[in-house]
Amino acid sequence: MTAVVERPTHAGRAVRSTSMDVAIALAALAAIAHLVEAPYHFQWWPASGITFVVIGLLQAAFALSLLRSEPSPRLIQVGIWGTVGVVLLYLVSRTIGIPFSPGVPVHGAKLLPGMPLLPDGDKQVGPVDMLTLVAEVALVVVLLGQLPRRARRRTANGLMWCGLSIWGLAILGALT
């Protein structure tokens, strides 16, 4: 079964579903948040700033592609799992820390694993972080609803296992 992403109007023109409008808004919100935050992260570590720019641009491109035409199930899958990847990366950064992030370049001193560069600086969760995270999670759920039934079931199972794995790691103390 194909997802219904457009509905006919009285004039015969196709318009997007409300769900797709929501998905576009959520993707755009996440894109803006990443792009706005990029300069600050670039100051800390250029690779982090570049990552923010790349994520922001990809999310913007995704929002644009949803805006322009009816997305294929494949594109929706890319949107879902790409967003899940961003969410997981964020989770790691706010728990165990990015393992390959730089130490403080002072004569031989390196950060201990999971130790932030600035005191709590890179593990703080602010309102903007939380808003973006919620937008991304909501985007995943909205996109899931756009998939054909079979793909939706498979993807929902994947998301469930992903979630259970996170819970399991948290319970085992691997994500603190």
Partner: peptide, 13 residues
């Protein structure tokens, strides 16, 4: 199923 992911992703932060 999606809620399992959503809950896990937002609970720790």
């Amino acid at each position: 199923k999606a809620g399992a992911f959503a809950g896990a992703a937002t609970a720790l932060p």
